[in-house]
Lab assay of single mutants.
Amino acid sequence: DVEEQIRRLEEVLKKNQPVTWNGTTYTDPNEIKKVIEELRKSM
């Protein structure tokens, strides 16, 4: 579920933690925001 994935990513973003997405680890909050944007567009 895309909305659930977005929620999880936003939680990680709030905690300022790195997130691994599709085999890539993002540590930059701006990169994580881009991933969230892409997910929103795909909905």
Results as ranks from 00 to 15, higher is better:
R8H: 13
T27Y: 11
E11V: 05
P29D: 03
E11I: 07
V35T: 02
S42L: 15
S42G: 10
W21Q: 03
I32K: 00
R40P: 00
G23P: 02
W21S: 02
L9N: 00
K14F: 12
N22T: 02
D1F: 12
L9W: 03
R7H: 07
N30G: 11
E11H: 07
I32D: 00
Q5V: 15
P29A: 10
W21E: 02
Q5A: 13
M43V: 10
E11F: 04
R8P: 01
V12L: 15
T20E: 15
K41W: 10
K15M: 14
V2M: 11
E31G: 03
D1L: 12
N30Q: 13
T20R: 11
R7G: 04
L9S: 00
P18S: 12
K41G: 08
V19F: 13
G23V: 00
T27G: 04
D1I: 11
E11R: 06
L9D: 00
L39S: 00
Q5R: 04
Q17P: 05
V2P: 07
K14H: 12
P29V: 08
M43G: 05
K33T: 07
K33L: 13
D1A: 12
I36Y: 02
T24A: 08
R40S: 04
T27A: 06
K15G: 08
I32F: 07
E31V: 06
Q5D: 11
E10S: 06
N22E: 14
M43N: 07
K14L: 15
Y26A: 00
V35M: 10
I36C: 01
L13I: 11
G23Y: 02
K14V: 10
M43I: 13
T27Q: 05
N22R: 05
K34Y: 06
L13G: 02
V2A: 08
K14A: 14
K34P: 02
T24S: 06
E37W: 06
S42K: 12
L13Y: 08
I36M: 04
P18M: 09
E37K: 05
Q17L: 15
Q17M: 15
I36Q: 01
R8T: 12
V19R: 00
E4Y: 12
E10W: 08
E4C: 07
V12C: 15
R8A: 13
E10I: 09
R8W: 15
P29F: 05
P18Y: 06
Q5C: 10
S42P: 04
R8D: 05
E31M: 10
I36F: 03
D28N: 09
P29E: 06
V12M: 15
Y26V: 04
T20F: 15
